[in-house]
Design a protein around this nucleic acid. Structure first.
Lengths: 152, 152
DNA sequence: CGGCTGAGTTCAGAAAGCGAACGCAGGATA
DNA sequence: TATCCTGCGTTCGCTTTCTGAACTCAGCCG
C-alpha cells in the first residue's frame, strides 16, 4: 500500500495522519500557532527547503487548515498564511503532543510553557468521559463500531 | 536542515514529531492501541512493507514507546510488541487526532467510536486550565519561556 | 530604468520508501 | 534424519520524495 492511500481508509486517525503525518507539517503548524505567518519566516525559523515548504503550505490550504490571504504591511501588500477554524481546532492535538514531549523528551524541563491568558494557569489536556466525568486512560476505553463504518 | 535534525531542536513538539511524524507511525500506534501485537498482524492490517514496518517497530522500541517481549502462543514462543507506559501516555494524542478527524474528515460519521468501559459514555479531549478550570482554546493561551529554554 | 523583496519554481543529486524475494529459527510432519 | 510450515525479519533493485542552490517573476522604490 502506498502511504497516500492512507487517506482512503475509513479511519479517523489514518485520514488526519495522511495530511499531518510527515516530519514537517507538525512543526509548520506549531509555528503557525506561535504566530508565524509569512513564507520566509516559516522558511528561516524551520530551515525547511523552500520547495517543500511551498508544497506543504499549499496542501494545508487545500485541506482547509490554513487560509492564504493578502494583508498590508506598512508599505506593501503581502500574503500570509493563517489558521482557519479547522486549523485552530488542531490545538488540542499539538498540546497533547507537547505535553507528551515535555514529559518524556525534555531533559532540561520544558523549553516553552503555555499559559492561560489572564488567569495565568497552565492548560492541560484531559481525556474525560462526557457521561460520568471521570478521567479516562487507554486501559479504561474500548472501541465500538460507529455510524460511519462500512461493512465490507 | 535535515528532517532528522528536528529531534535536536529544543522543542517539545519537534522531538515527538521527529519520532511520530511520518505516515506510518501514527497508524502503527493506532493498531497497537486496538490490540494488535504481532508483526504479521501489523503488516497485514496496515499493508505497510515489511522492511519499513520492521524499521518503525524497532525505532519505537528504541524510543521506549513499545516493548518487545516473548510470549507463549498455544504451542510456540513468539515475540510481540506491546505499548509501554510511555506509549500508553500517547493515548490523548491519538484521541485528539481522532476527534479532529471525526469532525472534519468523516463524511459518513465516525467509523469507530470510543466508549468508557463500564459507564459507556464517550471520552472527549478537553484542554482545561489547571488553575481556573476553564476550557482553553487556541486564542486563550500564550507561550512563555520555560526552565528548559537555552538562550542562544 | 535597475535593484530589492517576497514568494515561489526548477533541477540534479541524495535519501527514503516500495514490493518481491530470500534467510533463518523453531516446531511439526514423515 | 530430511523436509515443510510459520513468524519475523533482511536484502535487493527500482521508484518516489526531499534537499539545497540557483533561477523566475511581480510589485514597489529611487
Amino acid at each position: 500500500m502506498r502511504a497516500a492511500d492512507l487517506a482512503d481508509q475509513n479511519c479517523s486517525i489514518a485520514k488526519p495522519a495522511a495530511l499531518l503525518g510527515d516530519r514537517w507539517t507538525l512543526v509548520i503548524l506549531r509555528q503557525a500557532f506561535n504566530g508565524t505567518k509569512r513564507f520566509d519566516d516559516f522558511q528561516s525559523t524551520l530551515g525547511i527547503s523552500r520547495s517543500l515548504l511551498s508544497e506543504r503550505l499549499n496542501r494545508l490550504v487545500e485541506a482547509g487548515v490554513l487560509r492564504r490571504e493578502p494583508y498590508k504591511d506598512q508599505v506593501r501588500t503581502r500574503d500570509r498564511y493563517r489558521l482557519t477554524e479547522m486549523g485552530l481546532d488542531l490545538y488540542p492535538v499539538l498540546m497533547a503532543l507537547r505535553e507528551w514531549g515535555d514529559r518524556y523528551m525534555a531533559e532540561d524541563g520544558p523549553p516553552l510553557q503555555v499559559r492561560h491568558r489572564g488567569c495565568g494557569g497552565e492548560p492541560t489536556v484531559e481525556l474525560r468521559c462526557s457521561k460520568c466525568g471521570d478521567q479516562v486512560g487507554a486501559r479504561d476505553a474500548e472501541a465500538v463500531p460507529g455510524p460511519g463504518l462500512v461493512v465490507a
